[in-house]
């Protein structure tokens, strides 16, 4: 039995639900999950229903890591000697933007908590607004492409690096296109004492504009173009990367409505070139090319 029950209100092809299945398959039942406000919270817990088969708490948008800190110390204070793990599963808005203060506090204090960000690169629950995790040139409802704009004009925030800068033992990225990779990394993370940070790339058919059957394909393309590199950092050092036979970024961009303007608008070629340069830099920095 999966630990996220069916009947949840995720859109057809929801990447976040796939992420949760991969995560909970790795943790098993002996876990307490903390989530911020967001798509995952809304699709899974319309009172009196809940899709969660594991204990789960949602408090607010920006305090997930602090609530998890409280849960973790409470278990300790009660003298619970069991192996129950405390994990957070939150979207990019609740993690890299509004929740980064409490995330930083939790990481710095050294709580035994695994924080997992399902990164769908915008505020999907409120209608696809730009977040700090939205990639360069993606059109969102608050960073739309227009006569004088190519969409989001800032690069994606490097949150794994920010997490790593806290000197925590384990940071990793993964993608819902690679469930075995998620499983391996979640198992590894929860076995390590102390704070851990994982960021899982999570395509969203509704927000990114692709057919619901292409969620996994789009996720794979992000990895294969080096726009979302997959790696592990242990004690601040890169210890593994997922090698790729690299594809040009157009292959990833052209299948999504959020980048459609790059293929229609004058100057789009130059923008795609810039995005390719980002991918090239990622590949070079991390040694992604096979």
């Amino acid at each position: 039995m999966k630990l996220l029950a069916p009947g949840h209100r995720g859109c057809a092809g929801c990447g976040a639900a796939i992420a949760v299945h991969s995560i909970l398959s790795a943790t098993g039942k002996d876990v307490i999950v903390v989530s911020p406000t967001g798509c995952l919270e809304v699709i899974s817990t319309p009172y009196p229903e809940s899709a969660w088969e594991v204990p789960w708490i949602h408090s607010l948008f920006e305090n997930t890591a602090a609530v998890a800190s409280g849960v973790e110390v409470a278990r300790r204070a009660l003298g619970r000697k069991d192996e129950t793990k405390v994990i957070c599963i939150g979207g990019d808005g609740g993690t890299v933007d509004i929740g980064i203060g409490s995330l930083s506090g939790m990481l710095e204090r050294g709580h035994d908590v695994t924080y997992i960000c399902y990164d769908n690169e915008a505020y999907m629950n409120t209608g696809i607004q730009r977040s700090g995790s939205t990639p360069y040139d993606a059109a969102t409802t608050t960073s739309p492409a227009g006569k004088i704009s190519f969409g989001n004009d800032r690069p994606k925030k490097n949150t794994p690096a920010i997490a790593a800068a806290h000197g925590i033992p384990y940071v990793a990225t993964s993608s819902i296109a690679y469930p075995a990779d998620i499983g391996k990394k979640v198992k590894k993370a929860i076995a390590i004492k102390g704070p851990k940070y994982l960021q899982i790339h999570t395509p969203c058919p509704t927000g990114w504009g692709f057919d619901s059957n292409r969620t996994i394909e789009v996720g794979r393309l992000a990895v294969e173009t080096a726009l979302f590199p997959i790696y592990e950092m242990e004690n601040g050092k890169i210890t593994s990367v997922k090698k790729i036979k690299r594809k040009p970024v157009e292959e990833y961009l052209k299948v999504q409505r959020r980048f459609a303007h790059l293929f229609k608008k004058e100057g789009g070629d130059a923008e795609i070139k810039k995005i390719q340069e980002t991918a090239d830099a990622n590949a070079k920095q991390l040694g992604l090319d096979m």
């Binding site: 029950a5 069916p6 009947g7 949840h8 209100r9 899974s44 817990t45 319309p46 009172y47 009196p48 229903e49 809940s50 899709a51 969660w52 088969e53 594991v54």
Partner: peptide, 17 residues
Amino acid sequence: LSVGAVAEPGSTRANKT
């Protein structure tokens, strides 16, 4: 209603999507 809106596990199964 439960005090504090505490919900039962896996109860979305009531919602046949």
